[in-house]
């Protein structure tokens, strides 16, 4: 029964999503172009960059450290069978730079900053703060949405770069002092096999796309929420779930496109 319900349910979800997608796309466009509105302020943008950064930095660093250490263990386990532990530095770095850094940063960002952003915008809507702005002839897209959206686009690549660095350090700590891989080889191999444009920039570009998508979904869910206490709660949950799935889906597409 449940399975038979699944197909029409999925169909209904898709049909319900399509008109919403149009509205969400218009929302994104309005927010992106609001940078030229006279009520857009660099100060607000910096405040949001700082807010997002402070909110997620420690979380990112802890997560990155553990991820890097696990990569060290698992990579060693796989490589030691082929006597190829000299490639461990390369493995850790490539895994982080190309894949785990951008994806995990984006997922953590969606859970931490994205959900907070949805809650903030939807409560501003529920308490008529957005309408009040509109009444004061201040465009809420320029004052509220645009700075947050652009801040997401700026912050996620930066957080990703930090994630990569901390992760590589975690991988090094396990590989060299703990598992006894030669330190010189670890770094030298990494240096000669990681390319700047192919690996580092690709990863940061992914992070930028994820930053846009996560912040867009979070802001849109907040903006489109039912203006009630329950609506705020629902929107926050939906924001995290949708943004996480979108990151994973988009990651597949980007990886396929950028794969070289």
């Amino acid at each position: 029964m449940a399975f038979l319900d699944f197909v029409p349910n999925l169909g209904r979800q898709v049909l319900l999503t399509i008109p919403n997608l149009g509205a969400a796309a218009r929302f994104l466009l309005r927010s992106l172009v609001a940078v030229i509105n006279r009520h857009f302020s660099i100060q607000q943008l910096l405040k949001q960059v700082y807010g997002f950064g402070v909110r997620s930095l420690l979380l990112m660093m802890v997560a990155a450290f553990f991820t890097g250490m696990v990569l060290g263990f698992q990579g060693y386990y796989a490589l030691v069978r082929f006597g190829a532990t000299s490639a461990l530095g390369t493995l850790v770095a490539l895994s982080l730079l190309r894949e785990l850094g951008p994806v995990l940063t984006a997922l953590l960002f969606a859970g931490r900053a994205g959900s907070a952003l949805t809650a903030e915008i939807s409560s501003m809507k529920a308490t008529e703060q957005l309408s009040a702005m509109e009444m004061m002839a201040v465009n809420p897209f320029a004052w509220v949405v645009a700075p947050r959206l652009w801040a997401g686009i700026i912050v996620v690549p930066i957080l990703c770069a930090i994630f990569d660095l901390v992760g590589i350090f975690g991988g090094y700590l396990i590989s060299v002092p703990v598992l006894g891989v030669d330190g010189g080889t670890f770094w030298a191999q990494m240096q000669s096999n990681v390319t700047f444009s192919g690996d580092i920039l690709t990863g940061l570009f992914k992070a930028l796309c994820f930053g846009l998508v996560v912040t867009w979904i979070a802001a849109w869910q907040g903006y489109a929420a039912q203006p009630t206490a329950e609506g705020v709660g629902n929107a926050t949950t939906r924001s995290v779930v949708t943004a996480s799935l979108a990151v994973l889906g988009l990651d597949f597409i980007l990886t396929a496109l950028l794969f070289t």
């Binding site: 308490t127 008529e128 703060q129 309408s131 509109e134 009444m135 004061m136 002839a137």
Partner: peptide
């Protein structure tokens, strides 16, 4: 609208 003011039902303070 810059020459209008509105007091909202729930104050709507930031």
């Amino acid at each position: 609208r810059r020459r209008m003011g509105m007091l909202f039902q729930h104050s709507a303070l930031f």
